[in-house]
């Protein structure tokens, strides 16, 4: 189960590739043979299951393309080791 999830607002994307260069799990790429409304090759996720929800893509994106979700940590067993 993926730890994170990104939603891409494709038409905001200018295909600059900054997100691709920082994604630690290398699951972003610029689309091949497909263009958005602005005429750019938008970013896409190659392997959604690998997303960690680290938001580095959103942090470096100049065009606010990404919305990022992260799976909540399971609540710890209360005072199990105390």
């Amino acid at each position: 189960m993926a730890k994170g999830m990104v939603i891409i607002d494709e038409d905001r994307c200018k295909g600059c590739g900054l997100c691709v260069s920082v994604c630690p799990v290398h699951i972003l790429r610029l689309a091949e043979g497909r263009f958005n409304a602005k005429g750019y090759r938008p970013v896409e996720v190659t392997d959604p299951e690998a997303c960690t929800g680290c938001a580095m893509c959103a942090t470096i994106c100049p065009d606010v393309v990404f919305t990022v979700y992260r799976r909540r940590r399971q609540p710890r067993q209360a005072a199990a080791t105390a």
Binding site: G4, M5, G53, A55, A58, T59, V64, F66, T67, V68, Y69, R70, R71, R72
Partner: peptide, 9 residues
């Protein structure tokens, strides 16, 4: 169980 960690300001 997903929480929003980055949204459009």
């Amino acid at each position: 169980d997903m929480e929003l960690v980055y949204k459009y300001p």
